[in-house]
Design a protein around this nucleic acid. Structure first.
Lengths: 137, 137
DNA sequence: TCTAACGTTTACGTCAACGTAAACTTAGTG
DNA sequence: CACTAAGTTTACGTTGACGTAAACGTTAGA
């Protein structure tokens, strides 16, 4: 084996675009699109994109955001929160506010989910009832 | 006062489109759009739409779905689960499967949210740290 | 009476997030 | 060497969820 190819949990592992696509069950087109909008910036070997462990992590965060209904722009903002590039005090305070905002949204989602789960439980119970009283006709 | 206008928690209350729009802070265009795609079907008084308590509830469910990142089509399916129009046994079983699927998605979301909240907490802590060590320069 | 505030339909526009196709360049293999 | 598999860029197409006019009807109040 040469040098790339990634064993176990090597932190310096590298990935091709189709490897990532397969792993996360998305298309290469999507991955390139995320790059187009500035969410990923893999290094290159000639023309070919090479993704590091960090890129892979960012991709996971993007997809997590998508599952929560975030836009790519939203995800970008949140992911940027994780990197402390902000040297300015005002920016830091703004960032803390933004974090609080996101937390509020997430708490709203938690509430929504619990209500929806209850609704689904009731719906399922109704189904099972209907099956019992209806199963032997 | 005539007959409409809705007091307290009168179950036979009626609403105009702009009343609902104002209450839920959306546009009338959106409400009509939800009707276009079959999510609402208000009665009419002449040309004018009249929304019942049930319509209002459906609208609330639609918006809850949106907050969770569901498409209108997804919401339609879920809301349809609540109404036991299904007389067929096969349909009931399919419905139970669909409910389970939704539950899985919601549990995934719960997991995503808890992770995201942790990430945000760490990010905030980092900000606060940066503010302390950086505040007096 | 007229005008302001609400309602309606019809219809084209827009924006995000990709899909899809075309045309092309390497890298490895029977 | 021809061929296949994976990569690339460019660019137009599509879908969902509305936005945004335009053109019109109805009703209440100054």
């Amino acid at each position: 084996m040469a040098k790339a190819a990634a064993k176990g949990s090597d932190t310096s592992a590298e990935y091709s675009i189709s490897q990532l696509a397969k792993e996360f069950n998305i298309t290469t087109r999507s991955i390139r699109h995320y790059e187009d909008v500035g969410l990923l910036s893999p290094t290159r070997s000639g023309q070919t994109r090479i993704y590091t462990q960090a890129d892979r992590t960012r991709l996971r965060l993007i997809l997590r955001g998508k599952r929560l209904g975030l836009s790519l722009e939203d995800s970008r903002e949140i992911i940027d929160m994780y990197e402390p590039g902000k040297t300015n005090v005002d920016q830091l305070k703004k960032l803390i506010d933004a974090i609080q905002l996101q937390r509020n949204k997430l708490n709203q989602q938690l509430d929504d989910i619990s209500k929806l789960l209850k609704d689904l439980n009731r719906a399922e119970a109704d189904c099972i009832d209907a099956l019992k009283t209806n199963g032997n006709q």
